[in-house]
């Protein structure tokens, strides 16, 4: 049986109680993206600035459960100041970690299929995730996976929109 300590690791509760990079950047110039979890009504607002090919600043708004809020907070701390290419790698790795178990579930959403190549799961370097690895236990609670990935999907959309406006190099 998966225990609560698998889900609610201390670092998760810490980020839930004291979220990092909370708020909204003025938009424009920041890219502003909203994400929704239709299951629970949670919503997240990611505002980010991409300069010289890097995520120079990011803030997180919205409301949600401890898992979605801590995941967003951990994400913001992990990507701030990082090159967009590295951030995209991180998104891929994180979603890979979240889909190892999800990929074995029947009726999995097709939108996540791209992330669940069988080989990719084995190649996941969870150690490279640092503090984010604390969210690994979420996969034992399948209903909560969408809570953890909400902010990441929203960030990915924000990066796409930023690039479509300014080109892949960023500006």
């Amino acid at each position: 049986m998966a225990g609560l300590e698998d889900l609610y690791r201390e670092i998760i509760l810490d980020h839930y109680r004291s979220p990092r990079n909370r708020g909204e950047l003025p938009s424009p110039p920041a890219q502003r993206v909203e994400g929704f979890n239709p299951l629970c009504g949670d919503e997240i607002v990611v505002t980010l600035e991409v300069n010289d090919g890097s995520v120079s600043d990011i803030k997180i708004g919205g409301t949600g459960c401890s898992i979605s809020q801590s995941s967003a907070s951990l994400m913001s701390a992990a990507v701030k100041g990082k090159p967009v290419t590295e951030v995209r790698d991180l998104i891929r790795t994180f979603k890979g970690m979240m889909s190892i178990h999800e990929s074995t579930l029947p009726g999995k959403d097709s939108q996540d299929e791209a992330d669940t190549e069988a080989g990719e799961a084995q190649l996941l370097d969870v150690d490279s995730l640092g503090e984010l690895a604390a969210l690994q236990g979420v996969v034992k609670f399948p209903v909560r996976i969408k809570c953890a990935t909400l902010s990441w999907n929203t960030l990915a959309q924000g990066l796409d929109e930023a690039e479509s406006e300014t080109g892949p190099a960023g500006a």
Partner: peptide
């Protein structure tokens, strides 16, 4: 405490409650 977190802990004690918007978002 977010309703999802409440119902997650309740589940550990065998207590089944619903958490969510209950298909009534205008009311929420």
């Amino acid at each position: 405490i977010h309703p999802h977190d409440v119902s997650q802990i309740l589940d550990q004690y065998g207590v089944c409650v619903r958490a969510g918007h209950h298909c009534a978002k205008p009311l929420m």
